[in-house]
Write a protein that binds this DNA or RNA. Structure first.
Lengths: 201, 201, 201, 201
DNA sequence: TATGAATGAGTTTTCATTCAT
DNA sequence: AATGAATGAAAACTCATTCAT
């Protein structure tokens, strides 16, 4: 059972996501959002204090999903055999791609506006970015001893991985539109496993 | 010998780069630029048709440098021994880092605003991005036969590499501020060589 | 026996008086009133056609009281001895102070908004103000012959008296908060009697 | 020699005074002001940060005049004979009327909006009002010993006088429009001298 | 009768661009 | 060439009032 209010709010949020994704935060006017949502200008302000507030709300929604995904990734790079490590990396990649695919608009909004990094979303973006790096770095450090991952400096390596993830996810999901999750996650895994095995003979 | 006009134009461009980098395109006001440049509001329009034009000019300046750098990278991934291939990748990385380091503000402006990618710079950004992918992909294809680089799909692999380049360059140059070019280019090279050698036994 | 409707209407009026007094007509929102009254936004419009209407209603309520007070003041300045005249002025002052004290919020609303005198209450304010002047002037004229009040022009004198009344009532009731009705009405009477006896030797 | 800027600013201020006087602060739109001043909407904001700022500026201009007038009134109620005291009060009244007459619009703006006493001019109004009371009270106290002024409480008496001043000035300058400064100041003086001589036999 | 969600006209303010000097 | 005052279109936000339930 869904109330009238919830329906209206959903319409506004949904329209806002579409517009922010299409035109960016700065260029999206509140009048664009309400026009798309099919409600009056004033109605917007019954649900959100400002354009900024709804934007942040949308970002934070995705940030929550993303954060809990990262926190669950406790066995990234872990394993007692090369195969097991590879399997864990593969799972991580596959789930990460899925997360992006399902929430592609919100993801795009967050990472685009975060990159242009001025205004009020900068802290939100910085937080998630730092968290991403921290988790990947920690997992690398934890599993250095297994010998299946090799590196001089975990933070540097984590940065490589994140760049690789993010760019290619956007390129394939966004630019290319169609995406073979299985193939992409496998190739990603192979590249990463290769990159991390570098000094192994 | 530099004319007064050239000097004034230089002042405006230089101020614009600083402001765009500091506040982003949308939030930078023409009045910010002229204030920093120490000229009058009207003077700006003697040299540039619009705020957009100067922005594009700055981006294109960097795009030219970047393009010619890419075009010169004819021997990326080439070589008749593993060591030679590695050396070429290392040179490429080192020069790329140098290019970013020297032009960090313009690079940041282009890639940040490009990511948020709406408005008139989108084509500029797309062009350079596509060119980057094309060149890396072509070099990979050209050297597949040597056996020192292994991959299923060159475009996928190129995307991995570019993500890795870009993110880590910004992270280390920008966020970390200080950067050891030698160490970073070496680690980058090792990771890439590893990633590209994946199926090699 | 009071109906539910009457109770609701009373709640709204009472809340409106509080809010108009606290924030003024312009700054008081209908939503402030209904919030304070504990009814829904729409309910307001079942009882009043507009924000203006309730405002006018409140003012007119006080105006009625005030008018009938003035009309009753038939023996102001009258008397066959100085002592009797003084006594009548004293009574008038005391009752006037009482009227203001009891209805301080409505009085404040009327006189404040009347002073800033634009919009729909201007006529209401002007009417009461004119009536006040007329009555005082007429009483002065009627009793000029007694010799206990001396003046060149009754209207001028009436204006003096009204300014004296109004300002000091607000100053002592409003600003000073606590008020000694006996002392204030006595001092007022003495000052007025003095002012009106000026040419008497 | 008057600059273009000064001329424009003067036009805006002058139009603002007219509009504030005609419609009050709340009802005056910036678009009213610029229309009357014959400049563009944006021009207003080259000279004033907000509608509030210009309003306060106008009020403070008058407050300065008024304050310095009060500070100069050192001999109010002073004198070694009844005639001399009377002469000083008369001068004060005449000059006060003149001050109001010359600056009638600004005076009206200040006292009207101050009376409705919400918003940002309240402190300005309160300050001048308090100063007025303080000065009159002090002058009364200083000259109590001469015996030409009689009262129980100087503050009460000061309040009477100020109410009398203000109301009648507005009534005659504003409502009646035409005003005989000599006659009004003389009658005011007589009334005040009478009121203050009350206990004298 | 009562509710409260929805409406949309109205107002302030910003800032890229123009143009008279 | 240079100036900087002037322009006016555009956009966010408020709130009295309406209306479906």
């Amino acid at each position: 059972m869904i109330t009238r209010q919830e329906r209206t709010q959903q319409q506004i949020v949904s329209a806002a996501i579409d517009m922010f994704d299409e035109k960016g935060f700065q260029k999206t006017r509140v009048s664009d959002i309400v026009a798309k949502a099919g409600v009056a200008q004033g109605t917007f302000y019954l649900y959100f204090k400002s354009k900024e507030e709804i934007f942040l709300g949308i970002c934070l929604e995705f940030v929550k999903l993303f954060s809990s995904f990262l926190e669950d990734a406790s066995d990234l790079f872990a394993g007692s055999s090369y195969g097991e490590v590879r399997q864990n990396v593969l799972s991580f990649n596959r789930e990460l791609i899925r997360l992006y695919t399902v929430n592609i608009k919100a993801a795009r909004i967050l990472f685009r506006e975060g990159a242009s990094s001025h205004g009020p979303f900068k802290p939100v973006y910085d937080r998630i970015y730092t968290q991403f790096i921290d988790i990947v770095r920690d997992r690398l450090e934890q599993n250095r001893a297994t010998g299946y991952v090799n590196f001089e400096d975990a933070e540097t390596e984590a940065t490589f991985l994140i760049g690789l993830f993010e760019r290619s996810l956007f390129y394939f999901i966004d630019v290319k539109q169609n995406i073979d999750i299985e193939a992409l996650s496998r190739r990603m895994t192979d590249f990463i496993m290769g990159g991390l095995s570098k000094y192994r003979t």
